[in-house]
Each structure stands twice: as C-alpha cells, then as structure tokens.
Design a protein around this nucleic acid. Structure first.
Length: 104
DNA sequence: TTGGTGACGGTAT
DNA sequence: TATACCGCCACCA
C-alpha cells in the first residue's frame, strides 16, 4: 500500500509453476512445455524456475517433450522412476504415451 | 544498455 | 534413432 507494493509478477509466476509440479501424480510425468502452456509462458522459463526452485520438489516428474532429462539429473531421476514405477522405454527415457499427465 | 545464457521445443539432416 | 540448428524470452553481469 505504501509507495511500493511489489506485486512481483515474477514471484507469482514461480508459485504458479511450483503449484502445477506439485500436482503431478507419482509414477506419472508432465513436460516443461505443458506447464508453460498452463501458466502462460515459454518452456525455457519453466526450466529456469525448476533450476532455481527445485528444492523440495518432485522435479523428476517434469521431463522434456521426448521424455528425457539432462544427463546430470538422469541418474537420480531413474532412481525415482524405479521407486515410483514410472513406465520407461527401452531407450531409458520415460514412456510418454503411458506416463504423460496433462496438467489442468 | 547490450549481449550472453539456458532443467526447452520443433524441424532438418 | 541420434545430432545439429534455430527460435524464444526472461534473467544476469
């Protein structure tokens, strides 16, 4: 209310992304692009948020459109997939046909 | 202010 | 199927 009442759309955007990620059911995944579509932004913005705010989030449930993740996180992601029973392809990527979850 | 960067996506090769 | 390239656009030095 004072001279400065920072609505900070950046923070609201981050919260919106995190809210969607929290809704992805175990054993299922969604994509950066799908989240971007829901929150109204580009996939690279979503990736940027994940890189900074992944702390305490099921980040492994957010994958690329082809069902893969960066090699750096691939190993930890696979451990989570095995634990949650996430369907994978023979190539070692998430089976998008079987595991894709569309955020509402 | 300008330019480089990036947990991406889609298309071409 | 894998690799290369370009397009996008907010963020940071």
């Amino acid at each position: 209310m004072s001279h400065s009442d920072p609505p900070d759309p950046r923070e609201a955007y981050v919260e919106a992304v995190l809210a969607v990620v929290e809704q992805v059911p175990p054993g299922r995944v969604t994509t950066y692009g799908s989240i971007a579509d829901v929150v109204g932004s580009g996939p690279r913005r979503v990736g940027s948020v994940m890189a900074r705010e992944a702390d305490g989030l099921p980040w492994w449930r957010v994958v690329r459109a082809d069902g893969s993740l960066p090699p750096s996180h691939d190993e930890r992601a696979h451990a989570a997939y095995a634990e949650e029973g996430t369907p994978l392809t023979a190539s070692g990527r998430v089976d998008m046909v079987a595991a894709y979850w569309q955020p509402s």
